[in-house]
């Protein structure tokens, strides 16, 4: 099976309510709070080291019986500066796509270089929505960085 490495768009930064365990690398996210300020519209987004999906993508993934992830709650809001500059925008209730799988084995996994690796099936499901700003390359294994 072919696997792909994904580099999603990065539309914001951690909010004040984020809780991380930084004793490991990558840090373990205990509570996810993301402040969006430049979302371009993709269904899959990231802010190191977490990934999130729109509700519609979460629904598609949940129905497909894929492996290697859990859907968790996240706190999402538009940043103060974004509201001031862009005006209030409607922000989807992104779900936290918590990756639990192994790269090139599960449908969702984290490679040795901390990259997101997905199966062909997972990629097709994500591409059924919007994935215009995500860099996609065929995965050929990785080395730890």
């Amino acid at each position: 099976m072919t696997f792909y490495q994904l580099e999603p768009e990065v539309p914001g930064q951690w909010g004040a309510n984020t809780q991380l365990d930084t004793s490991t690398h990558p840090p373990v996210v205990q509570r996810l709070h993301l402040e969006l300020d430049c979302w371009l519209g993709d269904d899959l987004i990231t802010s190191f080291p977490a990934y999130l999906v729109t509700p519609s993508a979460a629904e598609r993934l949940g129905e497909a019986s894929l492996t290697g992830f859990e859907l968790r709650d996240a706190e999402i809001n538009q940043s103060e500066q974004s509201i001031e500059v862009d005006g209030p925008e409607e922000i989807p209730a992104f779900r936290w796509l918590h990756i639990t799988g192994q790269a090139a084995q599960d449908d969702f996994g984290i490679g040795a270089g901390n990259e997101l690796v997905v199966s062909q099936t997972a990629l097709e499901i994500l591409r059924a929505g919007t994935l215009a700003n995500c860099e996609v390359t065929e995965y050929s294994g990785s080395e730890a960085v």
Partner: peptide, 12 residues
């Protein structure tokens, strides 16, 4: 943002 994300991934 993308550059910084890559930096965080690569720098413990």
């Amino acid at each position: 943002r993308r550059a910084w994300n890559a930096f965080y991934l690569a720098n413990p």
